[in-house]
Design a protein around this nucleic acid. Structure first.
Length: 242
DNA sequence: AATGTACGCAACCGCGTCATA
DNA sequence: ATATGACGCGGTTGCGTACAT
């Protein structure tokens, strides 16, 4: 299930941890703490890098960690927080005692696979496709689900990201910058891999997150409350989730 | 029973952020 | 103000197991 142990060219061990290594690491940290991860493996008598030790401790050896089955409450919290925060796994983990960002991230990726295959998901995608975003250039036309509470970008508009792509909705009515045109940028979405909602974040400018900016704009800032209700209803009615 | 495929867990990697010299 | 090192986070990958054919 895990990578087979091996040594890199510097003699640093990689791959699965043995029981003996776990014991050494736990014993050392419980006695001395972990004030310096870089020095820790040397001091603990491990042939690992500090990064690897840190990961092992935080995700598996640290006391009071929960592993395995998620309760329905935990699932609900994860879904809601992901909806609000995006892929901020560490922030989500803060709200789930005993769970780590790493585990939650894994859970979410599994969850995405499940929900992307669900009948309801596909029906919703189909519905979305019947509501094209008509200002987008051909080939770039895709559809999105606006979060219930999009984050305002200092009055300039709102940002949405579909996993690795960005949607920007600017408002002509912006107080600070009412000269900028309203625009919507609809990214390509791989519907089998990505949940069609979420994740707000400022535009970072690289290939994957570059929005396809549009000049024309008269229709772009009009996402009706009915649309939002429709989308949220379809994604949060619970019938497809678990 | 053998083989192929999908899933899930655990580890690694790259990069951003922060502290310090 | 800048350079450097350490840490932390998020994304990706490897591989064992479970399930399907």
């Amino acid at each position: 299930m895990v990578r087979a142990p091996f040594y890199d060219k510097n003699g640093v061990k990689k791959g699965a941890w043995s029981r003996d290594e776990d014991t050494r690491l736990s014993d050392y940290i419980q006695k001395h703490g972990h004030s310096n991860w870089r020095q820790l493996p040397k001091l603990a008598g491990l042939l690992r890098c500090g990064k690897s030790c840190r990961l092992r401790w935080l995700n598996y050896l640290k006391p009071n960690l929960k592993h395995g089955n998620y309760t329905s409450e935990e699932e609900e919290i994860i879904i809601k927080l992901h909806y609000q925060l995006g892929n901020k796994w560490s922030l989500i983990a803060e709200k789930l005692p005993g769970r780590t960002d790493h585990e939650i991230k894994n859970y979410w990726h599994s969850y995405l696979k499940t929900c992307s295959k669900s009948k309801n998901y596909k029906e919703t995608i189909s519905e979305l496709k019947s509501k094209p975003c008509d200002t987008v250039e051909e080939n770039d036309t895709q559809h999105f689900v606006p979060p219930e509470n999009p984050i305002s970008d200092e009055g300039k508009g709102f940002h949405y990201i579909l996993e690795s792509s960005t949607i920007t909705i600017s408002r002509e009515t912006s107080v600070e910058d009412n000269s900028s045109p309203a625009s919507i940028n609809c990214p390509v979405m791989e519907e089998d891999n990505v949940a069609p909602w979420l994740v707000f974040e400022s535009f970072s400018g690289d290939f994957w997150t570059d929005p396809c900016t549009l000049d024309d704009t008269s229709t772009t800032n009009e996402i009706s409350s009915e649309d939002i209700d429709f989308l949220i209803q379809n994604f949060y009615d619970g019938s497809y989730m678990f």
